[in-house]
Design a protein around this nucleic acid. Structure first.
Length: 424
RNA sequence: GGAAAGAUGGCAGAGCGGUCGAAUGCGGCGGUCUUGAAAACCGUUGACCUGCGAGGGUCCGGGGGUUCGAAUCCCUCUCUUUCCGCCA
């Protein structure tokens, strides 16, 4: 959530930035928050005064008992009855205002960076860079789902049988390709200074709240109500939450982690042609990179992360472009997001394979992830993350783009991991 | 699944219901000494809310209760550890 203090000190700026995200009634919502804060502080001051008085009396009684003045002590006890009633009343009022204020703050999305383009939806995203050339496919080129069947490498029917739609079974060279991609991505991340994490695939509620999946996107996660756990939708959740309630020292920056995990998403309400084959799954593999950074450097780091992701796609030889997401398409928690889309030649469309975001202090505020600054004050860190990369659509593009009449030619960089150079 | 013990500051570890936000040790930071470093010595060192400030308030796993007063007593939840059982 946004920092109350920042909202108070930069009200106009926050309103302007939230408008980029098309937040309705921003002025009113911000005004309400500021008014509630004032109310809360007034109540606290009153309550604190009452408590201070009670503490003073309790201390006096203690002294009197020590001095053996029992009667005087007993007499003083009566003085607190009224104060206790006042305290209870004030505490209740304050708790109510607090809850209201907190609910309003938490329901407010992150404010986009001032340079984020305005826009309604994905159609208004801006292509900021384009790399590689789209291949000319041979006559009779197939979409990846048909290639999967032809070479018997991904079996969607078997997945349906043992689990359900959206849970494919990888077989033979298809399985090996998954493993190779994960290894390749992790090795590349390690070489770039990211420390590898292998996280749990289930998290508790506090973690879901920390990174912002809860409470607003609850329906997107698979839940295990019996144990109070959620299947992770991305490794971002466990990895970022490693630092929940942590105060780091500035010399640790940047804290860089990479982790492979299976990702579980209910994808409620998304059906149709976009979900064909590997395009959209309920379970998929992904290597995620997460960075915790000093606020002054987080946008430089965002560029570093983009370079890393771009480097992976370069090595794989896939044509891709980078989109700067507009206010209408950017996520609830993000201040700035770049999407990487690869060209899937047989489907003739762009597939999102990575989303790299700076959350500024939005997650850190919920998580209480702070650092001790050189001025001795504790301040909120910035958190960033990105996919590097999500496997299924990479596989789709590899299969489609590199198909030949003799089989699918694997990129050079994967061959040491694969042990073969062609799927046939 | 059964039984027991426990949860205190960055860590370790004390804490008769009344100057306990909390002894002590380690670690961290500053200083003295030193050519430099180590050692030694001295000092300092939790977080949060609130107030211009002086100050006030909250926090000893979470929640509730008893009391004039709770880290200390009671209830409850969660978690951890150990033993047994089961088991990759």
């Amino acid at each position: 959530m946004l920092q109350l203090q920042y909202i108070k000190e930069h009200t106009e700026e926050i309103i302007e930035r939230l408008k980029i995200k098309n937040v309705q009634n921003v002025e009113e919502r911000i005004a309400e928050i500021i008014a509630l804060d004032e109310k809360r502080r007034a109540l606290q001051q009153k309550a604190d005064a009452v408590k201070a008085e009670q503490n003073a009396i309790a201390k006096e009684i203690g002294m009197l008992f020590k001095q053996g003045k029992r009667d005087e002590a007993e007499a003083k006890k009566a003085l607190t009855a009224d104060l206790k009633a006042q305290e209870k009343e004030l505490d209740e009022q304050q708790a109510a205002v607090d809850a209201d204020l907190n609910a309003k703050l938490i329901s407010l999305p992150n404010a986009p960076h001032i340079t984020v383009p305005k826009g309604k939806n994905e159609a208004d995203n801006v292509v900021v860079a384009e790399f590689g050339t789209k291949p000319n496919l041979p006559e009779g080129a197939l979409p990846h789902w048909e290639l999967c069947a032809k070479y018997n490498i991904v079996d969607f029917e078997l997945g349906n049988k043992i689990t359900g739609a959206g849970f494919p079974v990888y077989k033979g060279k298809g399985a090996r390709l998954q493993r190779a991609l994960i290894d390749f991505f992790l090795d590349q991340a390690t070489a770039a200074g990211y420390v590898e994490i292998m996280p749990p695939l289930m998290v508790n509620e506090a973690s879901g709240l920390g990174t912002g999946q809860l409470p607003d996107k609850e329906g997107q996660m698979y839940a295990i109500p019996l144990d109070g756990f959620y299947m992770i939708p991305t490794a971002e959740v466990p990895i970022t939450n490693l630092y929940r309630n942590v105060i780091v020292s500035p010399d640790q920056f940047p804290i860089k982690h990479a982790g492979y995990s299976e990702c579980f998403r209910r994808e409620a309400g998304s059906y149709g042609k976009d979900v064909r084959g590997l395009n959209r799954l309920h379970e998929f593999s992904k290597v995620e990179i997460v960075v915790i950074e000093h606020p002054d450097r987080s946008y430089d780091t965002l560029e570093d992360m983009k370079r890393h992701v771009g480097g992976l796609l370069d090595k794989l030889g896939l044509p891709y472009h980078i989109l700067k997401l507009c206010g209408g398409d950017i996520s609830f928690t993000s201040a700035m997001t770049f999407d990487f889309e690869v060209w899937s030649a047989a489907q003739q469309k762009w597939l999102e394979v990575s989303s790299v975001s700076n959350f500024e202090t939005f997650q850190a505020n919920r998580m209480k992830l702070r650092f001790k600054d050189t001025d001795g004050k504790t301040k909120l860190c910035h958190t960033l993350n990105g996919s590097a990369l999500a496997l299924p659509r990479i596989v789709a593009a590899l299969l489609e783009n590199f198909q030949t009449p003799d089989g699918i030619i694997m990129p050079e960089c994967l061959r040491p991991y694969l042990g073969f150079d062609k799927i046939d």
